[in-house]
Design a protein around this nucleic acid. Structure first.
Lengths: 217, 217
DNA sequence: GTCTATATACCGATAGAC
DNA sequence: GTCTATCGGTATATAGAC
């Protein structure tokens, strides 16, 4: 009766992939802790609205101690942007490598993206959003987000083309369809963040209907 | 060949409606000027990232002079949130009143929302986004945005239901479909803001496919 | 009317104490 | 290792000059 109660094991795997590489990219345990807390605060208050004190308080440190791990607030933010962009790319890459038809793989990916459980993913997304829309952002962070934002497309578009050839995906410019897809996902993610888990939310089938080749044609 | 080159006259009318009431709600000419410029800066830098100096410079005033029109930065921001929320409601309301089938009216509305010409509308939307996602926002602004955010739904949902009865719109919980619709629009609007006019963008037909009742069923 | 100058406060980053 | 104290810079809002 209700929407997707149990996520497929594939989508759960994808969620995990999103965070893979975190340990390697940030070897220090304390730094990871700070990043986790900082992500939450940045997502809610923005870069400028976030005070080092806020992050320190959440992480259980004093204000000054943060500077033993990072040399500036911008530094923390930039690192998070890097991790988030990397993670998004990895999810799509892994989805592309799964066993299944193109539509099935896109289905699992969508399921992972929209899962209400993956709060972390929603936070990353809000930070990426700031990195790409706001001007009050360190140049380095903008550069990274621009550079890495292409990765998801690189892996997604071949899946679309494959699906078009198999007659599963609607015809049309694959780049345009990919842009539409990620815009949709972004919009739904934001709605999730704004309203929490308990509003009516579309099942994956509805979200992907714009991509689906109609059987009756 | 390319996507919607000429917008329908209906959608242009809707864009205008978005700004209607601006003069009445902000009678003072100088205040309107400041709001227009402030909207742009807030959209790009966020509330905290925006300095009164930025707004003043754009409006051609000295920093201190702004305070002859508004008593604080929060005051300006809150006013903008109010105007934006009101405008969004008015667009949908007017769309619901147009002559045409439910699907046609939703089509025109979507056209208006996605028009690359209506930069102002995209700016309003980014500010509404901040008002609803950020914690570093005056309480009053949050209250207003929460209260007025329901208006678009009030006018949109009856159109959906009418369309369902006419067999134009897919079956399913109208609230869920409306949430999906506005999420989609929001996501596409953000993509527009991030990338400008010159990336591949879906025509309205593609965007609305998830709402369309399939003929072949 | 509009600008300049300033008081007040806050925050980021450093340096030094324990 | 972790915290406290502080310096310097910057922004808001006001008050007074022209």
């Amino acid at each position: 009766m209700t929407q997707q109660n149990k996520a497929s094991k594939e989508s759960k795997e994808l969620e995990k992939r999103f965070n893979e590489g975190f340990e390697e990219m940030v070897p220090d345990q304390g730094a990871r802790q700070i990043i986790l807390h900082a992500t939450e605060v940045f997502a809610k208050k923005g870069l400028v609205g976030t005070k080092i004190k806020d992050i320190a308080a959440k992480a259980g440190f004093s204000q000054g101690y943060i500077y033993n791990y990072f040399k500036s607030k911008d530094d923390i933010f930039t690192k998070i942007v890097e991790l988030a962009a990397e993670g998004a790319g990895n999810s799509v890459k892994y989805a592309a490598e799964l066993q299944g038809t193109p539509y099935e793989r896109i289905y699992w990916l969508t399921e992972a993206f929209l899962s209400p459980e993956s709060i972390a993913m929603q936070h990353w997304r809000l930070i990426m959003l700031q990195a790409t829309t706001s001007e009050a952002i360190p140049e380095e962070a903008k550069r990274i987000s621009k550079e890495l934002a292409r990765k998801p497309f690189e892996y997604f578009i071949p899946m679309l083309i494959e699906g078009q050839q198999a007659g599963e995906i609607v015809q049309g410019d694959p780049m345009m369809l990919a842009i539409t897809y990620f815009s949709f996902i972004q919009g739904l993610g934001i709605t999730r963040m704004q309203n929490g888990k308990h509003i009516p939310f579309p099942p994956v089938e509805i979200v992907l209907r714009f991509l689906r080749e109609e059987e009756g044609r």
